[in-house]
Simulated scan of single mutants.
Amino acid sequence: MVKRDELVSFLDEYLNISAYPDKSSNGLQVEGKEEVERVAFTVDTTLRTIERAAKAGADMMIVHHGMIWGGLEYVTGVHYKRLKALIEKGLNLYVAHLPLDAHPEVGNNVELLKLLGLEPKGPFGEYKGLTIGFWSEFREPQPIEKIAQIIAEKLDTTVRTYEFGKREIKMVGAVSGAGAFALEEAWRRGIDLLITGEFGHADYLTAIDLPQSVLVAGHYKTETLGVKALMPVLKEKFGLDVFFIDEPTGL
């Protein structure tokens, strides 16, 4: 068991929360119990994940997507329902959005590269003045089909590939979730394959015209990695009981 404020201070420092101006309000969004023994990790803050965390006896939820984005003006509708559930159940809600994308040890994008047996070689994916992704490279070029198979199997997801550029891949850039903003950067820097979570109509048109090869593995699935990687850190540091709540969206 650990004091909530001690745990929050550690997370704020370890994840470098203050370094990332973000639409998400990162850090402790909702205050609950003063002592924490059991922690639920999940991607999204929804009534379903809140209820599952409380039912399993959690004192805190640590999530990638919180409930406050760009400030909270009105506590009505879904905001009221989620906040009411958290307060009634005494659950602390801790959020790490961009900080958990960009973390060099447990971040979503480092973990994406690790699925392929790669270690990051440098930052990649500039977003509003911040770099939140990483790039790496294989010793020898790999067929895009092989890379897709590995990602699909390890994330247990459906993968789509857009082979508009190279099909034999040496350099890889990873930006989880809605990472298609990095398409032109990938092309400019000679990165053979961009791995991301979402890919829309306009993104398709950009990629085909550059041209840039892309692997799309789902917003949700690519962002399960960071929260899962953070779990053993807190277990080892504080002896906490940790568990993951899987609520896939299929998106």
Rank of each mutant, 00 (worst) to 15 (best):
D192I: 03
A186L: 02
L11C: 13
D12L: 10
L240A: 10
A102L: 07
E163P: 02
E140P: 03
P120S: 11
V2L: 10
E137S: 11
Q212V: 04
V43D: 00
L240T: 04
E153M: 09
K114Q: 11
A58S: 07
L210T: 02
K146D: 15
M60F: 07
M1I: 15
P232N: 09
L116S: 04
I151S: 06
L210C: 07
L118V: 08
A229H: 00
A178S: 15
P123N: 10
G133I: 11
K128V: 08
G125N: 03
M60A: 10
I169W: 01
P248I: 12
K146G: 08
W135D: 07
V63F: 03
G129V: 00
A180I: 05
S24D: 14
Q142N: 05
L118G: 07
K221M: 08
L113E: 10
L72C: 08
M67K: 11
D192S: 03
L112D: 05
V8K: 13
P120Q: 11
R189N: 15
L205I: 10
R139I: 13
L234N: 12
I144T: 05
A152W: 06
G173H: 03
E34A: 13
G250V: 05
L98W: 05
G71R: 09
A202G: 08
M60K: 01
S24M: 14
G70S: 05
E247Y: 04
E119N: 09
A53Y: 00
Y204T: 11
L230R: 05
A40N: 06
H65V: 03
F41P: 02
P248G: 15
L47D: 13
T42Y: 01
G239D: 06
L215P: 02
V106C: 09
L98S: 04
V175S: 04
A96T: 14
E236Q: 15
E51K: 14
E111N: 08
Q29C: 13
L72Y: 01
G190A: 01
G66C: 13
A56M: 10
I195T: 09
W187F: 14
T42F: 00
A182R: 06
P99L: 08
E163V: 06
G129H: 12
T157V: 12
D5P: 02
W135Q: 10
D22E: 00
F124M: 07
D22V: 08
L86S: 14
D44A: 02
E198C: 06
D192M: 07
L193D: 07
M1F: 13
L130K: 15
E88A: 14
A229Q: 06
K3L: 13
P232I: 10
V78R: 10
R52A: 08
L15W: 05
T158C: 05
L183Y: 02
T224D: 00
E105G: 01
V242E: 04
V175Q: 03
I195C: 01
L230Q: 10
